[in-house]
Design a protein around this nucleic acid. Structure first.
Lengths: 193, 193
DNA sequence: TACTGCATGTAATCGGTTACATGATTGC
DNA sequence: GCAATCATGTAACCGATTACATGCAGTA
């Protein structure tokens, strides 16, 4: 049930259409909570029915409509309520580690390739997290700028600091995974040679 | 779709009832892939229909039946196929980090409590992963012993080594989270004092 | 004019969660 | 005999994924 709060949080920076939200979720900011676009559109409709967001409709061409969503007062309250509530720990489920528990089955070079893919994938993510932390420190992302514009000067430092802390945390995680994959590769080499 | 493979993997050590599998998933071994018992029972029935597992029924009392599941030859093939296939990266979704991105909203002591909960939760997990890695090295867990009994001596080292590597990886992750929470606590202290 | 990418959805399906039900066994 | 726990499910629901549909805008 966190998608709704991710949406409320992004909308807190300013109004946005479903498509723009979908883009946010896919690339720049909220890689912290992935969501495919059909889910975003349907969740926005649900939030609208619950009056946590409101939509401003504009015509697009002759028939199609564009809907820009913005937070309502109730939506802002809900966002603040959620942020103050302690998050209960998530259930654990990791497909890569599950599979690695059974690496005695495949041939050594298949195992090696799997660790290499794991490493490559987290190296790419690491670059992304680091770049984004950098952008945040420079206060460059559009979303952050809008958010800062709507908040008093005195609060700016905290807004930036916690987001940077999150992205640095993600980077640290990626480094942990890379190190794990490398120890894995050393292990394959030892076992098979 | 990894639950089915987790089940096949556990059953590869030897036949087991749904209840015993549910216990495995809840406590000792496969904390790597959490699953509640209703899902386990239904997935087992599905695996049975697909003939990847077979059930031996025994009476329990006068009406109830106990069903012990075991791998079929097709099930073993599927397990090996899955273990050799490169796992595609999972979609990212983290509620705790999402919330931490918006820690400018709650009061500092609420934020502090949240980081403390995060740390405590991962400290507990760390102890669990470390204990389990220890047990694996000593070849103590029942499941591992059964798995080893059904494999040639020459393969024992690999079976143990990869599982230990997974649990050590999990422990390392937990340490990363603990360190993140502690840097978070330092950050709150700095911001609020 | 056709093609590609932007933009907004609906529908079917599936995996996972929660609540509920029911019988068997064991120890007090 | 009763409570707790072992054991096996069913049903309703919800969040997430995938496939499909449709219209608009710019450009080759």
């Amino acid at each position: 049930m966190s998608l709704r709060h991710a949406l409320l949080a992004v909308l807190d920076a300013g109004p946005m259409t479903g498509y723009e939200l979908a883009k946010q979720f896919d690339q720049s900011a909220s890689q912290i909570w992935h969501a495919p676009h059909p889910q975003i559109y349907t969740e926005l409709r649900k939030l609208e029915r619950e009056e946590l967001v409101a939509a401003d409709e504009q015509l697009r061409g002759t028939k199609a409509v564009k809907r820009a969503y913005r937070l309502t007062a109730a939506g802002e309250r809900e966002l603040r309520r959620w942020a103050s509530e302690v998050e209960e720990p998530q259930r654990f489920r990791d497909a890569a580690y599950l599979k690695a528990s059974y690496f005695e089955y495949p041939e050594p070079d298949v195992v090696r390739r799997q660790f290499e893919v794991h490493r490559a994938c987290h190296e790419e993510q690491l670059r992304r997290w680091e770049r984004h932390a950098e952008l945040l420190r420079a206060r460059e992302p559009e979303l952050l700028r809008k958010r800062l514009a709507g908040a008093p000067e005195s609060g700016h430092e905290a807004i930036v600091a916690y987001k940077v802390h999150v992205y640095e945390g993600m980077a640290e995680r990626a480094r942990t995974e890379i190190a794990w994959a490398e120890r894995g590769l050393a292990l394959v080499a030892k076992m098979s040679g």
